[in-house]
Design a protein around this nucleic acid. Structure first.
Length: 140
DNA sequence: GCCAACGTTGGC
DNA sequence: GCCAACGTTGGC
């Protein structure tokens, strides 16, 4: 049984199409401990919504975690052993026929407890199984 | 472009 | 250890 997550990215910086082009990528640059702890909790085979923040403000599809947390190579401290940050590797799984917007989510009572609404700044969020199924059904 | 919410930093 | 100041995120 996979766990479910939500990853946020600004599409003008790195959007769904960028991930499709690369076919696979590491989710790097996370510099928040709560978000990092979520990255560390991810298991191979877990699934994550791909959310476009700022522009679009919608869930456009979902990805699969294919490699669990390892040190973030984009962090280059001195000394280099003091690197608290991690990445996971992801691949795009499916683009939704119908993107689910933040407005949609706010309007739907079943989704009112989503982290996206209650802790909107967190860039790596957990999603419940119920929320996951509700959204994937809606997005078809 | 503004600003609320949140996290981090640093003086005390 | 407290908290004011500052920086960042992201919705509006």
């Amino acid at each position: 049984m996979p766990a479910y997550w939500l990853l946020k990215s600004e599409p003008n910086v790195f959007g769904w199409e960028d991930l499709v082009t690369l076919k696979q990528d590491k989710w790097d640059g996370v510099r928040n401990y709560q978000a990092r702890n979520n990255l560390k909790a991810m298991k191979k085979g877990d699934l994550a919504f791909f959310y476009h923040s700022n522009i679009g403000k919608e869930i456009v599809g979902y990805v699969e975690i294919i490699k669990e947390a390892y040190p973030d190579p984009t962090f280059t401290p001195k000394p280099s052993k003091d690197n608290p940050w991690v990445v996971v590797d992801v691949v795009p799984k499916a683009r939704f026929n119908k993107s689910i917007s933040l407005d949609d989510i706010k309007r739907i009572p079943e989704l009112r407890n989503m982290v996206l609404i209650n802790n909107s700044r967190l860039s790596v969020q957990s999603v419940t199984q119920a929320e996951w199924h509700f959204i994937t059904n809606l997005a078809q």
